[in-house]
């Protein structure tokens, strides 16, 4: 009797587990290839985004302490008093310098924000893509602040990317150097139009005719024709021009204006564009 009861309990447990596993697998399969977050993904972004914000804050603090320590490591033992004084002065100077640098950066951001006709929102980078093939970042502003899918993200130096997913307090941004990104751009000196695509680290300007004169060092700016990025934002500078013997177009490699490895503070341009979808 007891054995039968145990077996029934085991069977029901197994059945329950099987149903749960099947439901879960169906959920994963149904989301395969889609790029819009469902509720589970949004909860995941919300919870881990908070952890990322904390981790970035802590690592920034430790990094600051560590860099201060490294600056002082070579000072001699017998000058302890002087070293202490020097350390205090250096720490203060570093703090002042950092404050000035932050001030300059934020002032530039403020100037940049005033340049745009659309409202803007400042955001901080809290996480980066850890995989080999993709270029995305997580920022600390989300749908509760009005951030929507498709909104362009820029920095003082130039374009950064586009918002691709949001949760109430965080958002994921596809960087412009990701192969899935495409932005309409022009060569500043002769207004030739092309499409800027990422190659994982830099940009490639596609669809510029072979006959157009483009040289190393030429500036590339956004055209505004895609309806996403405002016109005239810096994209980068031409680093190499490849003209194959055949074909209509030339391949133009562009060094991004923004340093994607050192992104800290960004500006989201809050324009609602149907093209962004």
């Amino acid at each position: 009797m007891k054995k039968r009861g145990n077996r029934a309990r085991q069977t029901s447990k197994l059945l329950l587990f099987g149903v749960a596993a099947a439901l879960f697998f169906v959920m994963v399969l149904s989301s395969l290839g889609r790029s819009e977050f469902n509720v589970a993904h949004k909860i995941g972004l919300e919870v881990i985004g908070a952890a990322q914000a904390v981790s970035t804050g802590i690592s920034g603090y430790i990094g600051g302490v560590w860099s201060n320590y490294r600056e002082l490591i070579n000072v001699r033992e017998e000058n302890r008093r002087l070293r202490e004084e020097l350390r205090q002065h250096k720490a203060a100077t570093t703090q002042y310098r950092e404050a000035v640098a932050t001030n300059v950066r934020l002032k530039k951001l403020l100037d940049l924000r005033e340049d745009f006709p659309d409202p803007t929102l400042a955001a901080r980078v809290i996480g980066r893509d850890s995989s080999l093939w993709f270029q995305t970042i997580t920022i600390d502003q989300g749908s509760s602040a009005g951030v929507e899918r498709g909104m362009p993200v820029v920095t003082v130096e130039g374009i950064v990317g586009q918002v691709i997913n949001t949760s109430p307090n965080y958002a994921k941004v596809l960087l412009a150097n990701d192969p899935n990104s495409a932005i309409d751009a022009i060569v500043q000196k002769n207004r030739s139009q092309g499409i800027i695509k990422g190659d994982g680290s830099e940009f490639v300007l596609h669809y510029v005719l072979r006959t157009v004169n483009v040289e190393k060092g030429d500036h590339i700016i956004t055209s505004g024709l895609d309806g996403i990025f405002p016109k005239g934002l810096p994209v980068g500078q031409v680093s190499e021009v490849v003209r194959a013997r055949r074909g209509m177009f030339q391949t133009i490699h562009v060094k991004p204006a923004a340093d994607f490895s050192r992104l800290e503070h960004l500006v989201i341009i809050m324009n609602k564009s149907s093209l962004a979808e």
Binding site: L29, L32, G33, L45, F134, N165, K172, N180
Partner: peptide
Amino acid sequence: DIFSGIHLG
């Protein structure tokens, strides 16, 4: 998938 790439799953 949430934090990497653009394709879910």
